[in-house]
Simulated scan of single mutants.
Amino acid sequence: MLDFNTYQQLLALYADYAAALDNNELDKWPEFFTDQCVYKVQPRENFERGYPLATLSFESRGMLKDRVFGVTETIFHDPYYQRHVVSVPRIFEADAQRIRAEANYAVFRTKPDDISTVFNVGRYIDTIRRTDHGLKFESRICVFDSEMIANSLIYPI
Score class of each variant (00 low, 15 high):
D3R: 07
A94I: 05
A103S: 14
L13H: 03
R67K: 12
D126W: 01
L135P: 01
T6M: 08
S152M: 04
D114V: 03
K28R: 15
R49D: 06
V88M: 07
S152Y: 11
V143P: 00
T117C: 08
S57V: 07
G50S: 09
P30L: 02
M148Q: 12
N5C: 06
D145N: 12
K111D: 08
P156I: 01
N104H: 08
I115A: 14
E45A: 15
A150N: 10
D95P: 07
N120V: 09
E102N: 08
V68N: 00
I128T: 11
V88W: 03
I141P: 07
F137E: 01
L64G: 00
N104E: 14
V143D: 00
D132F: 01
H77C: 07
E147P: 09
T55I: 14
I91A: 05
L64T: 00
F69H: 05
Y39I: 06
D22Q: 12
A18R: 07
E48A: 04
D95K: 05
K65V: 05
Y124C: 11
R44P: 03
R90I: 09
D16G: 06
Y7H: 15
F4L: 03
L11N: 10
F76W: 05
E25M: 13
I149S: 09
M148G: 06
R61H: 02
A19R: 13
F119H: 07
L26D: 01
V118N: 11
R100F: 04
N23C: 11
P52V: 08
M148K: 11
R44I: 05
H77R: 10
T72N: 04
E25C: 14
L153R: 13
F69R: 09
K40Y: 12
L64W: 03
G62K: 13
N151I: 10
I115T: 12
F32M: 06
L13W: 00
S116I: 11
L64S: 02
D126F: 00
L2Q: 04
E59S: 15
N5H: 10
P43R: 07
F144V: 15
E25T: 11
T6H: 03
F108E: 06
E147Q: 08
I149F: 11
Y124G: 06
V41S: 00
Q36D: 12
T127H: 09
A103N: 06
G122I: 02
L13F: 02
A20G: 08
A150I: 10
K136D: 01
R83V: 05
V118L: 15
Y14W: 05
F4Y: 03
Q82C: 07
G50D: 12
L13S: 03
L10Q: 04
R140C: 03
A15Q: 12
V41T: 08
F33Q: 03
N5Y: 10
E73T: 15
G62W: 08
L10D: 02
P43M: 03
N24I: 09
I157S: 01
V71W: 00
T72P: 01
S152E: 14
Y124Q: 07
Q42K: 15
D78H: 09
C142R: 07
R129P: 02
T131I: 03
A18C: 15
A101I: 05
N24E: 13
Y155D: 00
H133C: 04
